[in-house]
Amino acid sequence: MSSLTITDRDAAAGPVVEVTGDLDYTHAAALRRQVERLTLRPGQCLVIDLAGLRFCDSSGITALLAARQHALAAGADIALAAVPANTLRILTVIGLDRIFTLHPAASTA
């Protein structure tokens, strides 16, 4: 059974959203809703911390792209932190490694 936990906190550069579990068809919408609730100011950087991500399918990719759209619309930036190898491979295949700023860890974002 898949599961997903999402928490967010504020860091100096902007909000940090920690994703733990599975970003799949069942749970991806939760990330979209959570991110859409965030208020972003121009110049901030939204960091999605994927250190705890176990699985990501196309629904998860869609949620990440929606987060990107939400950030850009607010004049903010977006970065993915601690992307697991599996997901990084997928991001590379679909070219998103060049669309998202990637950081080894949330603290370096």
Binding site: I61, L65, I94, G95, L96, R98, I99
Partner: peptide, 12 residues
């Protein structure tokens, strides 16, 4: 180097 189709105005 190919990118998902449809997310950017132009994609390589």
């Amino acid at each position: 180097g190919g990118l998902l189709v449809g997310i950017l105005p132009s994609a390589p």
